[in-house]
């Protein structure tokens, strides 16, 4: 029993360097800033009150309130600011600016923890107030930012660590949070793959065809896709295998690299062939942080090496 407990503890709390956290922090920081910038021109139209934009904020917030009143939403900020005389539009502009600034601060590692909390809070508020407008990318951004906010920030490549000498997190805690991210990513692919396996048309390639020709994902003309008609069943089955077997083959050191390359290629394909750049980027960031860091080293670092590796480098 004691041996089992120790083994479980070693698995759950492996001593890790903070490189994976750097990848997650920089990746999500850049992603949050790009998310805000890409929606900048339409921000008011998407989130303003129904008189000037879509009615989705009102509807989404009402539906959310029926389920729970404790989840952040844009309406909270508007209600607080209206007491100070600020208009709905002004609040939306400030929230958008805060999101860009918080994303930038997170990417460079300035005030890491407050920046991570701000990114999570502001993005979650926008996602929940725009639930009718949301798609997969918002869920994965929330997941990534939720873990990042709780992780032992700052990492040693953050400006907080280099300029202000803030100490980096404990190796075992870094290992724990990476393990959480790894298990979650595995479950995402496992359940995503199982659900797809149960759809007949994924096995024939018909679903892949539908996904690529379905507006607004029809970036490539169907006539061009038809030239590769015979590849659709193979590609469809490859996606099923990649996703469903992900937890097994990403966990094995011998197959980790090839599986990671396969999954990253799949997401790159989704980004380029379906125009889902944001979705592809966030999935690549989660994969890179969870399994990419260390995948190309020959052996796992010993705890001692990890601790030595984390010593401040110059200037600290």
């Amino acid at each position: 029993m004691k041996a089992w407990r120790e083994r479980a503890s070693r698995w759950l709390f492996p001593a890790e360097s903070d490189t994976w956290l750097t990848v997650l922090r920089v990746g999500l920081g850049v992603h949050v800033a790009l998310y805000a910038l890409s929606l900048g021109r339409d921000w008011s139209y998407l989130f303003a009150r129904s008189a000037t934009g879509l009615p989705t904020r009102e509807l989404s917030e009402r539906v959310l309130s029926l389920e729970t009143p404790y989840v952040p939403r844009i309406g909270w900020f508007v209600a607080i600011a209206s007491r100070l005389g600020a208009s709905d539009g002004a609040v939306l502009t400030v929230l958008w600016l805060c999101l860009v600034v918080a994303g930038g601060a997170l990417a460079v590692g300035l005030y890491c923890r407050p920046a991570a909390i701000a990114c999570w809070l502001l993005h979650l508020s926008a996602a929940k107030s725009g639930d009718f407008l949301a798609y997969g990318v918002d869920r994965f951004m929330t997941i990534g930012l939720f873990y990042l906010m709780l992780s032992p920030l700052p990492d040693r490549r953050a400006l907080d660590h280099r300029r202000r000498g803030k100490p980096a997190g404990r190796p075992e805690l870094l290992g724990f949070y990476r393990r959480v991210l790894q298990v979650h990513v595995c479950l995402i692919y496992l359940y995503g793959g199982l659900n797809k396996c149960l759809g007949a048309s994924w096995w024939t390639g018909e679903n892949l065809w539908r996904a690529l020709t379905r507006p607004p994902f029809d970036v490539i003309a169907p006539d061009v896709l038809l030239h590769f008609k015979s590849l659709f069943p193979i590609a469809g089955i490859s996606i099923l295998v990649l996703e469903t077997c992900y937890p097994l083959f990403i966990g094995l050191r011998k197959t980790r690299r090839i599986w990671l390359i396969g999954v990253l290629a799949m997401h790159l394909g989704i980004g380029l062939m379906m125009g889902m750049y944001s979705f592809a980027l966030v999935m690549m960031i989660l994969n890179a942080a969870a399994f990419g860091v260390g995948a190309w080293t020959t052996a796992s670092s010993s705890p001692r090496e990890v601790v030595d590796d984390r010593a401040p480098q110059g200037g600290g």
């Binding site: 389920e67 979650l124 659900n195 149960l198 996904a211």
Partner: peptide, 21 residues
């Protein structure tokens, strides 16, 4: 429970485009 899964982004499954598009 509802609050927690909304805060963590775990309120739904991962069957995007599944079982069919």
């Amino acid at each position: 429970l509802s609050t927690y899964w909304h805060l963590g982004g775990i309120e739904g499954g991962y069957g995007f485009f599944a079982p069919n598009v």
